[in-house]
Design a protein around this nucleic acid. Structure first.
Lengths: 340, 340
DNA sequence: ATGAAAGCGCTAACAG
DNA sequence: CTGTTAGCGCTTTCAT
């Protein structure tokens, strides 16, 4: 690890010269080929070490046309579910000896497109969209160029596209069933925007209420999956008419906001009002919050998504798939039977 | 955006052929040089569009020896302060037209080294260590090769190294002063491990207690900066002898754990016991938690760190610096005067 | 087992 | 303004 400063970095050529062999042999040896004599190998390794040689990954990629890099797009960094998925993906990418190139469009579709373009120029071999605001056509055209996996959204399918999602239908039903089982009938819903998961969860809420003969008690207060949105939505719900005995929020973050609104109104959770969220973010497990929720296997989703990518990269025959994982009810401290 | 599938991607050479000009001219035109005739430019742009040409960033990097990529190492993804710093850094990196290559050693120093090595092989032009477990010597040797900025730790300095931290001394003093001002004297501390920030915060706690003539009330319960660690530390503190009227926790996550322990013991926060954290993570602002804390400008730290990197990359003369930012007291709902 | 030669796709002088 | 000539550092035939 000699420290050099102005001088240019040693290349494979320098190593070859110093070891008294050819470039090609150095290349072979350094990649652990068996058809290199021990003598040469040792000489080469010694020379490389003495020179502090470090291979140039760009040159290698150019030569063998493999970037060994996966591109990940994550539209939002603030909802903790996304970093958690990233973490799962990241660890399998690394385990395969690949690199992770991360971009974020930060909710701006325009910006998102240019960022994605940069990823492609970098010759990433696969693409993971952890969260995105891209039109279906764009995703399809990306997928035409390279394996693509979309997390949390099932809507977009097509050749080259895999999706990894959890079964929001089942999850939302579990949430409602949990509240029904506890004996709740006046159940409100804080909805979660116009993207697929929010829409599905709201639809199931309505269906379940109707199926239970409670259509007159349906109360939906629009949220936006943020803490503040949940707070405001709950406030509105608590202020107009007879408050519900339970709230099903479209995600954990807004459920936590709703908890605050309840406190403001002098309602204790869960004694006076039950709250159930959705996602299973780590912070909901904090004993201070102890949020009952429908948990998605977040890390696992990232992991599976990455594995799909490698299935294709390693040439395994796979059809396009939509992987649907099962969510799980985590009964914690924010739900209880309604007061009688 | 023609969809091709098996055929190889068009290169600058194909564009040149189609436009009836030379490669170099295409290169110039596509990078917006002024010394290209309008006729040629148009022909080139047309050809590029028709072919669905996408430049190969690897080839470009190799040729002009600039990867336009910054490497970021983030040892832990779970404490939300790190993604937040990442977000700040990421946005300036992108604004400069650079890419972000993200690695994580996941707390394993061995793994961390190989990951860092991969970053270097990728020819990243600068390195940001958002969190790391590297020995000082390693960091110095990295910095000998390329501009390096270390966040949250001031300890390591040397040629090529910048640090961005907040003034933990001042912050910890602010926390203590806040509690003193409210009238607290029996103040406990939940410490935060062996890394620099935790050590400093604990030291200041002790100093301040002594300076206030309260040395006999000093009570430190070892935490590890996790939620569970904070919970356990607080439990121990509440179980042995007369409980403090206030707790200063080394970070927000453990402060939130401490809140749960207080609840367990039937203590209301802040009526029976005050709690102050450190960091200013977004989740502390949730109205449900409303955690009083010493806030660090997390996003800003990431941003500044990235800017330091570009100062060097763009050849601005800069001495090695340790940027020290001021923390800020956020008085929220978990601190109040002690019961009389 | 080893080396020579020919690129990978692009940029960078250098001529004209 | 435009084209030619050399590479960047590495991998990959293809001989030997």
């Amino acid at each position: 690890m000699t420290e050099r400063n102005g001088e240019k970095r040693p290349t494979i050529h320098d190593v070859a010269a110093r070891a008294g062999v050819s470039k090609s042999l150095v290349s072979l040896a350094l990649r652990g080929s068996t058809k290199v004599s021990d003598t040469s190998r040792e000489a080469i390794e010694k020379a490389a070490a003495e020179l502090g040689y470090r291979p140039n990954a760009q040159a290698r990629s150019l030569a063998d046309r493999r970037s060994r890099t996966i591109g990940i797009n994550m539209a939002e960094l603030d909802n903790p579910i996304f970093p958690q998925m990233l973490s799962g993906a990241h660890s399998v990418i690394r385990a395969r000896g690949y690199n992770t190139m991360l971009v974020s469009g930060e909710r701006d579709p325009e910006l998102e497109s240019t960022e994605l373009a940069k990823l492609l120029e970098f010759q990433v071999e696969g693409l993971m969209l952890i969260s995105h605001r891209l039109p279906a056509a764009t995703v399809r055209s990306l997928a035409a160029d390279l394996p693509t996996v979309v997390l949390t959204l099932r809507g977009i399918t097509g050749p080259g596209i895999d999706t990894v999602t959890t079964d929001d239908e089942a999850g939302a039903r579990m949430a409602m069933q949990h509240l029904f089982d506890l004996g709740h009938t006046r159940i409100g819903h804080i909805s979660g925007g116009s993207l697929e998961p929010g829409v599905v969860r709201e639809r199931v809420y309505r269906e379940q209420m109707e199926a239970a003969g409670l259509s007159t008690s349906i109360r939906v207060s629009p949220g936006d999956l943020t803490n503040f949105g949940g707070l405001e939505a709950a406030r509105r719900m608590l202020e107009e008419g007879k408050p519900p005995t339970a709230i099903f929020a479209s995600n954990d973050i807004s459920a936590i906001g709703a908890m605050a609104a309840c406190q403001e109104h002098g309602l204790r959770v869960p004694e006076d009002i039950s709250i159930i969220g959705y996602d299973g973010v780590a912070l909901g497990a904090l004993r201070t919050l102890s949020l009952t929720t429908i948990a998605q296997p977040l890390t696992e989703m990232g992991r599976l998504g990455a594995e799909r990518l490698f299935d294709r990269l390693e040439g395994r025959k796979v059809k396009d798939r939509s992987i649907l994982l099962e969510p799980e009810l985590l009964t914690r401290g924010t739900t209880a039977a309604p007061r009688t």
